[in-house]
Amino acid sequence: MPTRSAAVLASGTANAAKLFVAALAFTSAYVGLSAYGNASSATEPAHTITLAARELPVTAPVQTSTAAAETGQISVSILAGGEAGCAKSYLVRSVLTAEGPEQSVSYGWRLARWSTATKTWRTYLVKYDGFAGGSETVEWRPQVSGNPGWYRVELQAGDAKVIKSDRFQVSC
């Protein structure tokens, strides 16, 4: 029996040695190929990209003066001395009246942007506020930054009907 065990042991050792040599050869080839790829890689030539922007003409300008506020109406005016570029600040005003002198009024502004993809008005900015009793001129100063398109302002006080402004175009 000792001869059979010795033969199996010698055969197993030979197989292990072959596997070790094969693994060493594979590792050497991988390292050599990686080094060759890194050494022979030259920098790619630079690609010139030209960016173009198109100007959208203002077809429905927003008033530049501060418009008077009225009940049931929303006035939108652009603030003079706004940000440079496409950042524009607006003054939005309306008049709200409480049902009684001791009643409070909760209201919400919504700046909506026209989506050409869905053909709907989508919310761009919102603001909620309120006051107690009487009548008040409420105002909001939203800012549109770098997003040209058609906009409108909506105002809802409590459960009353939503008041919508005329649409206006923001362009850069």
Rank of each mutant, 00 (worst) to 15 (best):
T116A: 11
T116W: 14
T116I: 09
T116M: 13
T116P: 05
A117Y: 10
A117M: 15
A117V: 15
A117H: 03
A117P: 04
T118N: 14
T118V: 10
K119E: 11
K119C: 03
K119G: 04
K119Q: 13
T120F: 05
T120W: 09
W121I: 08
W121H: 10
W121E: 04
R122G: 11
R122E: 15
R122N: 15
R122A: 14
T123N: 15
T123F: 06
T123G: 00
Y124V: 02
L125M: 13
L125S: 08
V126T: 11
V126W: 03
V126Y: 06
V126K: 02
V126P: 06
K127V: 04
K127W: 04
K127I: 02
Y128D: 15
Y128M: 14
Y128R: 12
Y128I: 11
Y128G: 12
D129W: 03
G130P: 02
G130S: 10
F131M: 02
F131E: 04
F131I: 06
F131W: 09
A132D: 15
G133S: 05
G133K: 05
G133H: 04
G134K: 08
G134T: 04
S135L: 05
S135N: 05
S135R: 11
S135G: 09
E136K: 05
E136H: 13
E136D: 10
E136M: 05
E136V: 08
T137F: 02
V138R: 09
V138E: 01
V138F: 10
E139A: 11
E139I: 09
W140G: 02
W140R: 07
W140V: 00
R141L: 11
R141P: 06
R141H: 11
R141G: 07
R141C: 00
R141S: 06
P142D: 05
P142H: 01
P142N: 08
P142L: 08
P142G: 04
Q143K: 14
Q143N: 12
Q143T: 15
Q143E: 07
Q143R: 07
V144F: 02
V144D: 06
V144E: 02
S145H: 10
S145V: 07
S145G: 01
S145M: 04
G146F: 11
G146V: 12
G146C: 12
N147I: 10
N147P: 07
P148R: 10
P148A: 01
P148E: 07
P148K: 06
G149V: 09
W150L: 12
W150P: 10
Y151Q: 03
Y151L: 00
Y151D: 04
R152I: 03
R152W: 08
R152M: 00
V153I: 10
V153E: 00
V153P: 01
E154C: 08
E154K: 04
E154W: 02
